[in-house]
């Protein structure tokens, strides 16, 4: 396909298209771009403007209020914790998934894909019946006689972390798995035959080859965590509040100015994280791993 005749065809095809004076394929994007400018870019600009309507009062309130500060810190902390736990669980799972064959591989893939295709809300409801006082975990432990009172598994930070980890885990597994499938497996036995201890062969030969998948997964899970709403709202109770939930609550109380200000803070944080992340991985690939 890179042969000389094809290259010649390219150079002769160009002027033919240029004669019309317009790049036809670029024009094709115009309707969609206008749609997104009007209904995605403009709404976000409006949120920015709404937050500074009547001066910088909202930002002063944000900076001075200990309540909002606490929520911002808690959001960041839960997002970081969820990302780390997801990575610790996803890496061995993806490793096994990429090394076993046949039926077991299909089973492991289906276990990841069924949740991906199930709504966050439905899975949060599943977590609700798992964690609640009369739910599966507590009732099973009580019937076994391991506990006499239900454990406080729901309406706290633990429930939020547990639920978000469960929901975001596939987004960590899939990018790591897709990189592991392309790793050159013969390099590890090569390192072993040269006398490297197994842990060293793994850490210095195998793991570096999978880093792009790890970065994609970490970036995606962290960014999705920062803006997560459903799990904190259903499983968090009064504890485990995160910023997205505060935004919804402020908007419900008709405090759109303050809701917009928190939204801008969340947007700025997300943008910074993505800008740093995009230096290491292509953002299109990061989203491609979502489904």
């Amino acid at each position: 396909m890179t042969s000389a005749p094809t290259a010649a065809a390219t150079t002769t095809a160009r002027p033919a298209r240029g004669r019309r004076g317009l790049d036809g394929w670029a024009l094709a994007a115009v309707p969609g771009v206008l749609f997104l400018l009007g209904l995605f870019a403009y709404p976000i600009v409006r949120v920015l403007l709404r937050s500074v309507e009547g001066g910088t009062g909202n930002y002063v309130r944000l900076a001075e209020s200990t309540g909002f500060g606490k929520i911002l810190v808690q959001t960041f902390w839960i997002a970081a914790l969820v990302t780390v736990v997801c990575l610790l669980l996803a890496y061995p799972y993806a490793l096994v998934m990429s090394r076993v064959g046949g039926l077991w591989q299909t089973v492991l893939i289906i276990l990841v894909l069924v949740p991906v295709w199930t709504a966050f809300l439905v899975r949060s409801i599943g977590m609700q019946v798992l964690l609640m006082d009369t739910g599966v975990i507590n009732r099973t432990l009580m019937s076994l006689g391991a506990i006499s009172e239900p454990l406080p598994l729901i309406r706290n930070t633990f429930a939020v972390t547990f639920g978000m980890t469960q929901i975001l885990l596939p987004f960590m597994i899939l990018p790591i798995y897709s990189v592991m499938r392309r790793v050159r497996p013969e390099l590890v036995p090569a390192a072993l035959s040269l006398g490297a201890p197994p842990w060293r062969a793994f850490l210095q030969v195998y793991v570096p080859q999978t880093l792009s998948g790890v970065v994609s997964g970490v970036l995606l899970v962290f960014v999705l965590s920062l803006g997560f709403f459903v799990v904190p709202a259903i499983l968090g109770g009064t504890g485990g509040t995160m910023i997205a939930r505060s935004i919804v609550e402020l908007a419900n109380r008709n405090d759109l100015g303050m809701a917009s200000t928190l939204a801008v803070a969340l947007l700025a944080t997300t943008t910074i994280v993505l800008a740093v992340g995009s230096r290491f991985v292509r953002l299109n690939d990061v989203i491609g791993g979502r489904r």
Partner: peptide
């Protein structure tokens, strides 16, 4: 512009869209 909606937190899209 096209991949933005997948990465911007939905609550921000929501509040902007509402307006």
């Amino acid at each position: 512009l096209v991949i933005g909606p997948a990465l911007v937190p939905p609550v921000i899209v929501a509040i902007g869209m509402f307006g």
